[in-house]
Design a protein around this nucleic acid. Structure first.
Lengths: 235, 235
DNA sequence: GTAACGAGGTTGTAATACAACTAACAGCAA
DNA sequence: TTGCTGTTAGTTGTATTACAACCTCGTTAC
């Protein structure tokens, strides 16, 4: 005798899933205007309230844009835009920050290999510009940290993989504030050193070397956070 | 003369902003139960519809959890929540299955190292269960593919990193359909073989071996997709 | 030609009602 | 007491209807 759990699925959830399907399957294309809420309600056989719930969810997720008096439209999204930086990173504690840095290590160590393989001369020139800005910004932890993240963002773009780019965007917006502390703690020298070496690896299209540099670089950050934590716990 | 843009703010948007303030300022603490929708409607001086819109938005953002018949509760913010922003990029890249697989390779090859280091006996038992289910499901591409993804999901959980878990979840939900085709194309043997080897690597806590197995495993998938695309383009 | 107006369609908000669900309590039986 | 059962009050989910706010576009008046 095996009792299976009863599934109680929201109606609005079902509508949402179907709509998501239309978007993924390309039935509703970017820029296109959706049928009106009344029309959708009739077609789905549910009330307008339910339709609105599903639409709103898609809105929050950034898949749709609803304009008063006009209708709902499928959003065209560029992989780079980190519009949905809605979570206040202030609420992050050290443990969460640790997880973020760990995740960075996972993604960036591997993706920088791709970046090295696919690097163009223009890419490298941009990297060098950012590095120069970092050198000029020594003494200003905020600007230095921002440039540092920008460097990593550019490396992400160089993979030519939209998901990596998007991920880097999320990480960037999450780490923006924490970066200032990290720079204060580790100083400016390591950042400049590692980023310089990364540029060299890009020039040589040496993915393995780039990966090992990146691993060391990010481990430094992680160790700093661990030390911070110990100091805090010690008090 | 400076003309400022006219702000026409939704009522529900205002309610949402206020509620977000309560959450970030700690007026509503994690785990706490919010007043009922009716009560909130009365206090804010708006209709229940409007309250529900604001609540739902907070739900989608992961700040609240609403349970039917019980009420709305403040959720503990998890670092993984920020990865929700990945969803739009994944959804719209439907004909970029290639990019998704490439991204998987980046994330999973590196994260499986962590999984190996942190694997417990219980984890490995679960993996073995899933593998057995895969063996039983040979002949059923749909179920086999689902179990396959579940295996990878479990590996993600074993990293104990919320961002990895969230990312795997998003990837899983988008790959579900494609997986069926991949299984049909590659057959059942490779999946069972590689997953078996991964379990061995987990038992030995051998991260490097796990990573190399995973790389080979995912490369197989990628190669299949490349072939598929060539056939498609050939027509 | 141009500006003002208005019609029709669309989303936003409200009020009300009921269904579906949960938790807690009262009451009964062993 | 202890354990089960039925009831009840409270909560969220959905439906219905209505109207306000807004946009687009064609028509009209000057």
């Amino acid at each position: 005798m095996s009792i299976k759990p009863i599934k109680k699925v929201n109606v609005s959830e079902q509508v949402f899933e179907q709509m998501k399907g239309f978007l993924t399957k390309g039935e509703w294309r970017p820029g296109e205007k959706l049928p009106s809420e009344n029309e959708l309600a009739e077609k789905f056989g549910v009330s307008r309230i339910t339709i609105r719930q599903a639409l709103q969810k898609l809105n929050v997720l950034g898949l749709l844009e609803t304009r008063l008096g006009e209708g709902s439209f499928v959003r065209e999204i560029e992989p780079g835009d980190s519009m949905n930086a809605l979570l206040p990173a202030v609420l992050f504690n050290r443990d969460m920050l640790m997880q973020v840095e760990e995740f960075r290590e996972i993604v960036e160590v591997e993706s920088v290999k791709l970046a090295a393989e696919r690097a163009s001369k223009e890419d490298i020139a941009v990297l060098r510009q950012i590095l120069e800005r970092m050198e000029r910004c020594q003494g200003n932890p905020k600007k230095f940290g921002a440039a540092d993240l920008e460097f990593h963002m550019k490396l992400g773009e160089m993979t030519r993989n939209d998901l990596v780019v998007k991920t880097e965007g999320i990480l960037q917006s999450t780490l923006q504030e924490a970066m200032e502390d990290i720079v204060r703690g580790t100083g400016y020298a390591p950042g400049i050193h590692y980023h310089g070496e990364l540029i060299e690896a890009m020039e040589q299209h040496d993915g393995r070397r780039a990966a090992s540099i990146m691993k060391e670089h990010l481990s430094n950050n992680k160790n700093f956070i661990i030390k911070e934590e110990e100091i805090k716990d010690g008090l």
